[in-house]
Structures are given as structure tokens and as C-alpha cells.
């Protein structure tokens, strides 16, 4: 069979590239343009070019603090969601029960409901008159309800639960490398269960776990609804900040600059990650 000619391959790629250009590249260019427009003191956008918004953002310790909170929230969520998703994924991959399909569907089913609905679910559970508080009050462990909702804790809990299905899918798709025969081979060669886990399972699934962690991190960092609904206005992350600058203070220049910086952050994280993964592949 002959490979299709170059022009034909180009043609086949064209619709995808076009869609990407229209839905991603164009808005990005637009965003970049907005971020460099001058803005007068009373908020009027003027024609021209200036890096004022970037200077403003980078020179303001508040935004650095927001950036740090964002990264911290993403890391924490990834560190919680991935270890919790791993046993579930492993179980789903290994299970031979005929309920396996149902169980897999159940694990991923939360994705069928919108994030907003699930976040409200957490508000009900964590609220002042929510399930947990009610239970603690009823059992006498608390005299007054404690604040579980409206804050970083609630945001992290909700984000972890909301993003876990993504982690499960990501890990599950990477468990293909983990053939049970390979583990059996290792055991027969004399490896104890701990050694099998450390020397075979872990190195084989680590790239998958890292990918899942990256996915969760990126989704957590870019999430808006959950920090907004669960944060009680206390959780300042880049996404909420961009939203506020866009819709409340109408400072689109700063919103644009923050968006571009967030994109750069993603790019940086992904490239660092790539390098770590590569090094890992080389080491094992």
C-alpha cells in the first residue's frame, strides 16, 4: 500500500486545523490584543499598544499571591485525586467480575452531571446545616456547626471529587502496559509482593499517574465554577480573578494579561513535566 501523497494528508488535516484556528488560535490572538490596549484611569479602553497590564499584574504582589494559591490548589487536588483514583482504576482494570462494566460506568458516571450540580451537591453535604454538620451535632461531637463550606477546604474536597473520574479514565487508559503476566513473571523470579509493586507496577504506571496528575492539575487550575461556588469568595485563583476582572471590574486588559500568563503557566508546567517524564523513562 502506498502512502497518500503529501497534499492529500494536508487536506485531511485541514478541517481539524481550521477548527483549532477558529476556536482556539483566533480567540487567543484576540485576547492577546485586548491585553495590550491602553486603558485610561477611569476605565476607558483606548486604541494603541502598551504593556501596562502586564506591568501592573507582574508588579503587584497580590497577583503573585493569587498565582501561588492557584498552583497550590492545583497541586493539592492532583495529590489527592490521583492516589484515590489509582486503586479504583487498578480494581477496574483487574476485576474479572461481570459487574465490571457497570462499575466502570459508575466510576465515570459523575461526568454525566454538570460540575455545577455536583458542586451544589457538595454545598448540601458540607453546609452549615449539611449532612456532616448535622451528623456531628447529632452525635454530640460538636456543640455548634463548624464551617466546612465556603473556603479552601471545601474547594479542594469538591475539586478532588469532581476531577477524580478524569484521573480514573487517564490511569485506566495507561494500565494497558501493566500486563498481569509481567507481574507474575516478576514474582516467579523471586520478587516479593512489595518488590513487585515497587520495581514493576509502580515504574510501569508512574507515567500514567503523572499524566493523570497533570490532567487534574490543569483542570483544577483552570476551574472557575467550583472555586466560585465552594470558595465563599475567599478562594482567590487565577480563573476567578480573570472572571472578576472581566465581568465585575471590567478591566479586560488585566483579564487578558492574566489569561495569557495562565496559558504560559500551563505551557511551563507541561514542558517541565515532559522533561521529568522523559527522564523517568530513561531511568527505568
Amino acid at each position: 500500500m502506498q502512502a497518500p501523497p503529501r497534499w492529500l494528508r494536508g487536506l485531511l488535516l485541514a478541517p481539524g486545523l481550521l477548527a483549532l484556528a477558529v476556536t482556539f488560535l483566533l480567540p487567543l490572538v484576540w485576547l492577546g490584543r485586548i491585553s495590550v490596549l491602553p486603558r485610561s484611569g477611569d476605565g476607558v479602553t483606548l486604541p494603541g499598544f502598551t504593556l501596562q497590564a502586564y506591568q501592573h499584574v507582574l508588579g503587584d504582589s497580590f497577583y503573585w499571591w493569587v498565582l501561588w494559591k492557584t498552583v497550590w490548589l492545583g497541586l493539592l487536588t492532583a495529590c489527592l485525586a490521583v492516589p484515590m483514583a489509582f486503586p479504583i482504576a487498578l480494581f477496574l482494570a483487574r476485576s474479572t467480575t461481570r459487574w465490571r462494566g457497570v462499575l466502570a460506568a459508575l466510576a465515570i458516571a459523575p461526568l454525566l452531571t454538570s460540575t455545577v450540580i455536583r458542586t451544589y451537591g457538595w454545598m448540601v453535604i458540607l453546609g452549615r446545616h449539611g449532612m456532616i454538620n448535622d451528623m456531628l451535632l447529632w452525635s454530640g461531637m460538636l456543640a455548634m456547626p463548624v464551617r466546612l463550606d465556603n473556603g479552601t477546604l471545601a474547594t479542594v474536597i469538591a475539586l478532588t471529587e469532581i476531577l477524580m473520574p478524569y484521573a480514573i479514565i487517564s490511569i485506566l487508559s495507561n494500565l494497558g502496559r501493566l500486563d498481569t503476566e509481567i507481574e507474575q513473571a516478576a514474582a516467579l523470579l523471586g520478587a516479593t509482593p512489595v518488590q513487585v509493586f515497587r520495581r514493576v507496577i509502580l515504574p510501569l504506571v508512574l507515567p500514567g499517574l503523572m499524566t493523570a496528575a497533570l490532567l487534574v492539575f490543569v483542570l483544577a487550575v483552570s476551574s472557575l465554577v467550583t472555586p466560585q461556588l465552594m470558595g465563599g469568595g475567599r478562594v482567590f485563583v487565577l480563573a476567578t480573578e480573570i472572571f472578576n476582572e472581566t465581568t465585575l471590574t471590567l478591566n479586560w486588559q488585566v483579564a487578558g494579561a492574566l489569561s495569557i500568563l495562565l496559558l504560559l503557566l500551563f505551557g511551563g508546567v507541561i514542558s517541565v513535566y515532559q522533561r521529568i517524564l522523559q527522564r523517568m523513562e530513561e531511568r527505568f
Binding site: G41, D42, G43, F62, W65, L248, T249, L250, N251
Partner: peptide, 18 residues
Amino acid sequence: VSAHYSEWVRRIQREVIS
């Protein structure tokens, strides 16, 4: 007030909420 809108919102965020 309009001219100071964003500044005030920002000050509320920084000096009151966080």
C-alpha cells in the same frame, strides 16, 4: 464612583476578604 469602581473592588478583595 465609576472611576474608582475597580480600585475599590480590589481594595475590598485585598484588605477585607483576604
